[in-house]
Amino acid sequence: MRIKFCGTASLADMRCAIDAGCDAVGFIMGVTHQSSDFVTAAEAAKMVRRLPPFVEPVAVTHLQETQDLIGLVKESRCTTLQVQNIIEPTELDAVRDALPYVTIVKAVHVTDASAVAAAKRYEPYADALLLDTRTREKLGGTGIPHDWNISAAIVANSTIPVILAGGLTPENVREAIRKVRPYGVDVHTGVRKDGVRNPERTLAFAREARNALPNSGNEE
């Protein structure tokens, strides 16, 4: 089970995720909605330089304009782009043409059953989908789970990897994985305590996620 820890805002956050054996760390940049733990692209780039091999840096952003997305990835030096906001699917092709080395993850907000069609709409243009929860104020980092039955239906019918996010915690991630069967999981607020990433909760989340399914430990 692949694991991404999002909202990496300091070297301490990053070390915490690395010590838990993460596959990816997310840097929240270019925010237009309410968010926490966001950084500038320059700050992210400094942390990316300190990442060990085989840990993927992910630019997580609310930005929608193609040139803004391209500029953000270049400046931050991330190799995966996670687009949280609404964007025309064909715009993802424009990003790919400009940055052929970048993996594109498109967030789909699971507010109701319409998310199934939204996921299918983006599927031909993205390398992976991320199923998240949103509110009027927030495009992610809400700490609120969504309907895992809808997420499970999206996973079952997707031809590309699907990552589950939205209100995941060490206490519920095992159940969520067993229900949804995603390619990976993504957590932000669920491993924080007193406003910062908590080592014990981060380790517990990774342990629960990797042991959720038979033979779901570290894949080769």
Rank of each mutant, 00 (worst) to 15 (best):
T90G: 08
G195Q: 02
V162D: 11
T103Q: 09
D112Q: 06
G140S: 10
G184V: 10
C16Y: 14
E220P: 00
P57C: 02
N157G: 15
M1Q: 07
G141I: 04
A113P: 05
G71M: 01
Q67W: 04
A126G: 13
A41E: 01
G166Y: 10
G30E: 02
T169F: 05
T111F: 10
V108E: 03
Q34T: 03
R197D: 04
R192L: 05
P100K: 00
R136W: 02
R136N: 01
A113S: 10
R15T: 15
F54L: 11
V185Q: 05
E175G: 08
G26T: 05
H188P: 11
L213W: 03
E56S: 10
V39S: 05
A126V: 14
A128I: 05
F27L: 04
D112H: 13
C6E: 08
C22Y: 06
L131I: 15
N85D: 14
T66V: 15
S76I: 00
L51T: 06
H188D: 11
T80P: 08
V60R: 09
A9Y: 12
F54K: 13
I3G: 12
D93A: 08
D112E: 10
L11N: 14
I144T: 07
R210C: 06
D93R: 10
L11V: 15
V31F: 07
P199M: 09
A176T: 12
I144K: 07
L72V: 01
V108K: 02
V73Q: 00
T66W: 04
P100A: 00
V162W: 14
R96V: 01
I87K: 09
V191N: 09
I150K: 04
N157L: 04
V162I: 09
T80R: 09
